[in-house]
């Protein structure tokens, strides 16, 4: 009887912490206060403070984690809604997404190789520009460490959101389409949330390229690993 009780308690506490952090972010919208980051820090501090192991936390946590699969499936809904825009701009979207996808995977791999990073970590870095639920599964499939991938995905998201606007200005990416595809391909869902500041076209382009990167990344991730013989 104790196990289900603990599981429910963990789930409720995680949700409560998340909702509280959403409120904090609404009040103070600094990029560093993004709820997913602050809530994770709270959970980790909680586990450390009460000497709870990660596997004990996952007794409840796995139920939240289990919704990631259906959430990925749910991405079909916005994609379906935007099908006309996608058809209209299909050529620049596909070109941009392929450029971003391969640059993302290969540059991560090469930088990691240059700095002498261990193999399982290189494989965890590879899918970093892809949205978390898919990146986790790609990393696991390649033999990486999924929880490290989650951190790399978050760093890719944050750095894109914080540095992106300045870099795009610098290299003269001016069109809404180009900005959206850049945000979506490099910084997935976080980039897409930033795209809201540039208007609807940028948002659609960003979410489309995020989804396409996830789709194509799961196919081409293993191919890149095979070509480069990591």
């Amino acid at each position: 009887m104790q196990q289900p009780f603990i599981a429910i308690l963990i789930i409720l506490l995680t949700i409560a912490a998340y909702l509280a952090m959403v409120k904090v972010y609404q009040r103070f919208t600094y990029p560093i206060l993004i709820p997913v980051l602050t809530t994770t820090v709270i959970v980790i501090l909680g586990l450390l403070a009460f000497h709870i192991s990660y596997s004990d936390y996952m007794v409840g946590g796995k139920w939240i984690n289990a919704l990631l699969g259906p959430a990925v499936v749910a991405l079909a809904y916005p994609l379906y809604n935007q099908r006309h825009i996608i058809m209209k701009y299909s050529f620049p979207i596909i070109g941009g997404v392929f450029a971003g996808l391969f640059t993302g995977m290969i540059s991560g791999l090469l930088f990691a190789e240059v700095f002498g990073i261990k193999r399982d970590l290189i494989l965890s870095i590879l899918p970093k520009s892809i949205t978390t639920p898919v990146a986790i599964q790609i990393a696991a499939g390649l033999g990486g460490v999924p929880s490290m991938t989650v951190v790399f995905v978050m760093i890719a998201g944050f750095s894109g959101v914080i540095l992106g606007p300045r870099i795009m200005k610098w290299v003269r990416i001016r069109s809404h389409l180009g900005k959206g595809i850049a945000f979506g391909s490099a910084s997935h869902a976080l980039g897409t949330s930033k795209a809201f500041e540039y208007g609807e076209l940028t948002v659609s382009m960003s979410s489309v390229s995020m989804t396409l990167c996830a789709l194509l990344g799961s196919v081409f991730g293993p191919v890149v690993v095979w070509i480069f013989q990591v």
């Binding site: 450029a99 993302g104 520009s129 990416i173």
Partner: peptide
């Protein structure tokens, strides 16, 4: 590594 690679990715996707 992740930050550098993200910047390169963004530039490539946007420019292309």
């Amino acid at each position: 590594i992740v930050v550098l690679s993200t910047i390169v990715t963004m530039v490539a996707a946007g420019i292309a």
